[in-house]
Design a protein around this nucleic acid. Structure first.
Length: 83
DNA sequence: TAGTTGACCGGAA
DNA sequence: ATTCCGGCCAACT
């Protein structure tokens, strides 16, 4: 079950102000196609030390994280990243 | 052990 | 550009 652990670590590693897609996190965890599982793991584990709000979809839309819904920084960064 | 679920992704309509 | 469908993966029941 290191994948789960790896995912959490990867998200923890996300620099402040930066955003990563589930796909990226999954890739960092060792499996790029496990983006789906990543989301499942996040909610399955109440990772308080893990900034899940920095994790966004490939579309740039936020995930299902309900804790934050104000800072558009993520979307802005995501846009810059896309360019 | 097998089946279902979900915070996804990519391609097609 | 938006919506629909199928597919991959790990966890849960």
């Amino acid at each position: 079950m290191e994948f789960k652990d790896r995912v959490l670590v990867a998200v923890k590693r996300i620099p402040k102000g930066e955003t990563r897609t589930y796909k990226e996190v999954a890739a960092a965890a060792g499996n790029e196609r496990a983006a789906r599982a990543v989301g499942n793991i996040m909610k399955a584990n109440s990772d308080r030390a893990v900034p899940c709000h920095r994790v966004v979809r490939s579309d740039g839309k936020p995930g299902g994280y309900n804790g934050l819904a104000g800072p558009d920084k993520q979307k802005l960064l995501a846009t810059e990243k896309s360019s």
